[in-house]
Design a protein around this nucleic acid. Structure first.
Lengths: 193, 193
DNA sequence: GCGTTTTCTTGACAAATGTCAATGCTTTTT
DNA sequence: AAAAAGCATTGACATTTGTCAAGAAAACGC
């Protein structure tokens, strides 16, 4: 079962070059885990101890407010990484939840494991820096859309940028991710036929 | 005029430790620049060649859409860094503008200068990584607010988190930053007296 | 200081989005 | 296969936010 790491190193090698030996070292730091649909990877008030690289399946990061309303902050499909970075960095309890939208397989990496790995394989530090940069740029783009576009435009933008999310994620979660209500999304879809 | 670098190294030393010698090396890579109020640091369709550390004054990063409407994506006060990171990284023309809200002083750092500096002073790499992480976490928090709160809540949140922005930035820019119209902000302020 | 420009406020009205409730359709569970 | 739970759609109506236009206040430039 070594193809578990195939996608991970494919992604890593798009940004930096790792030798076979280095790859073997890295492998030892990850924890492979299967999660069933609807199962939590992180629950509010827990500390986020791991970042999760998605090997197969999909997950969401979301908050639940006082009134019980959920707000999806991020989705993660195959090849993406998901975590509450704030809690992961600071060690403080998370105010987010992460759960699986389908049966899912992830590679977990703790903070200490990442630090050791970076010591042994310095090139991987660069990978994480670039990853962080990309994540920031992508989030900045999403923020631009959030403050400047209508519900209709936001949806069509997502459709154009990440069609796979639209296909695989329930509509009420997509509405939540975009910042409006499921009924609004339903009406947008009807209008755009 | 060496106090130009005081704030920069104060910020850096909050995260990593640099010797006097290392600090001297770093200084040589920055370009000190004064900008008058309303002057551009970056204009749409130019490549963003520098990140700018704000020594004094304030700036904004914003887009202008087809209809001429401005949308402010970021403010930067003293001690903050501002740039269109996407253009900076990729070398592609920017779709953003940066201009000064007051007479402002900045320390510019080009991509190549940053790369050389990191070679000579490796600790600074760690600083930039942590900076990136913090920026991401802050933006994620802002995104959560953007998708889950009303105009009123967004404003009060900003007021609680960054009161200095509210004090120093014109209201119509704050409204733009929060994703609604100046008239709406005006009404929120009246109601909350 | 004085005129000019920019910014802020207000009101009346329009448009977008939210709320609530009912219904039918899927998917999951047993 | 039946029952239950979750999800999407729709309509009527409420609320929030945007638009436009006018005037007042503040900041700026000379």
């Amino acid at each position: 079962m070594n193809e578990i790491f195939d996608l991970l190193f494919k992604k890593v090698n798009e940004k930096v070059s790792l030798s076979e030996a280095e790859q073997e070292i890295c492998k030892s730091f990850f924890i492979y885990k299967k999660i069933r649909k609807r199962q939590y990877l992180l629950q509010e008030s827990e500390v986020c101890k791991y970042t999760a690289f998605v090997v197969k399946g999909s997950l969401r990061l979301y908050t639940v407010n006082e009134k019980g309303a959920e707000h999806v902050l991020q989705f993660a499909l195959e090849g993406w990484i998901i975590a509450d970075l704030y809690s992961f960095i600071t060690g403080e309890p998370s105010s987010y939840n992460i759960d699986a939208l389908e049966d899912t397989e992830v590679l977990l990496l703790s903070k200490s494991a990442q630090e050791e790995m970076v010591q042994l394989v310095p090139a991987i530090q660069q990978y994480y820096y670039l990853l962080m940069q990309n994540a920031y740029v992508a989030l900045q783009r999403r923020m631009t859309i959030a403050i400047s576009q209508t519900a209709d435009e936001k949806y069509n933008n997502l459709l154009a940028t990440y069609p796979e999310i639209i296909q695989r994620v329930p509509q009420h979660m997509i509405a939540s991710y975009l910042g409006f209500k499921p009924e609004t999304l339903s009406r947008i879809r009807r209008k755009n036929l």
